[in-house]
């Protein structure tokens, strides 16, 4: 299990990195390496060139804006966990990230790496969809922003062009007082989820659902928003019965299956995780204070 030979570049600036990427047809970006390097060691991937962006200046920032929080592509998963901004403004992401792998893999694993690897079971893409992510792609040709729907095209397939690199993701920060919940089931804590659910809930002054997002992970090729469940919850008081009814709409969305998690089983898990995520989100949401 030794990686095949490759050329190695370690650009110091984004321009340098994008220049290298533009000139190398068979290059891979090396970020945290927690998914790519095992594939190299198993010789399942053999790129001619690795462009190591670990020392590109400015890619590891967490920037708090009025409505959005911008995360640089090289923000480590462990840094997200520790970030007061993330915990305060993006509690969903903070909860999701703590369930990725193990502390030592999160030390290296990055936001951008997880989004670009786009494993169907990954936590960050599911949270990103729930948080209306805008993905910032840069190339020597310029910069553009993609919605999650444009970015997550299919099973481990992104909408990035070959010369493009993900440099940041802009996530919607829900208003103070919203509730978030992230639930997943895996064989062992830290394993790839067999189903996950991300929920965001905001309540009005009467305790009715004012805004809601429900996203499932590990149930389809890409993260999936359960809009029917959201519609069912909107404007209503989210008691146990309603949450269970809404969560039950998650099961039929499942299309991914394998011998370890057949469709019927994953559907039950999806429903259970949706229920748990919604329950947690509702429980954590404050009623909007009615202006005096």
């Amino acid at each position: 299990m030794k990686a095949p030979p490759f050329d190695y570049h370690r650009p110091a600036s984004l321009d340098e990195a994008l220049g290298l990427l533009a000139g190398q047809p068979d290059a891979r970006i090396l970020a945290g390496g927690q998914s790519l390097v095992p594939m190299l060691n198993m010789r399942l991937a053999a790129p001619a060139t690795l462009i190591d962006i670990n020392r590109v200046d400015g890619l590891d920032r967490i920037e708090e804006g009025a409505d959005r929080v911008t995360l640089g592509a090289m923000v480590r998963q462990r840094a997200l966990e520790a970030s007061p901004v993330v915990r305060r403004r993006l509690p969903l992401l903070a909860e999701a990230v703590a369930q990725i792998g193990h502390p030592v893999t999160r030390n290296r694993g990055t936001v951008g790496g997880s989004l670009c690897h786009l494993d169907p079971a990954a936590e960050i893409p599911a949270a990103a969809l729930a948080l209306d992510a805008r993905l910032v792609a840069a190339s020597a040709r310029g910069t553009r922003r993609l919605a999650m729907e444009e970015f997550a095209l299919g099973m481990m397939t992104t909408g990035l062009e070959p010369d493009e690199m993900l440099v940041a993701v802009e996530l919607a920060a829900w208003p103070e007082g919203h509730g978030a919940g992230f639930a997943e089931f895996a064989r062992r804590p830290g394993d790839f989820a067999m189903a996950s659910a991300a929920a965001l809930v905001a309540l009005d002054g009467a305790g009715r659902v004012d805004a809601v997002r429900l996203v499932l992970g590990a149930v389809a090729a890409t993260p999936l928003r359960v809009t029917e469940a959201e519609a069912m919850l909107m404007g209503r008081t989210p008691d146990t019965t309603l949450i269970a009814e809404a969560a039950a709409l998650a099961g039929p969305c499942v299309t991914l299956e394998d011998p370890q998690a057949p469709l019927w089983y994953r559907a039950r898990l999806a429903t259970a995780m949706a229920k748990r995520a919604l329950t947690a989100a509702v429980g954590r949401a404050d009623r909007k204070r009615v202006a005096a």
């Binding site: 190695y8 390496g33 390097v37 290296r108």
Partner: peptide
């Protein structure tokens, strides 16, 4: 100071 898997880090990255 950060714990890492040294099988997933190339030596050149530790320069």
């Amino acid at each position: 100071g950060t714990a890492v898997r040294s099988c997933l880090l190339f030596a050149v990255q530790a320069e």
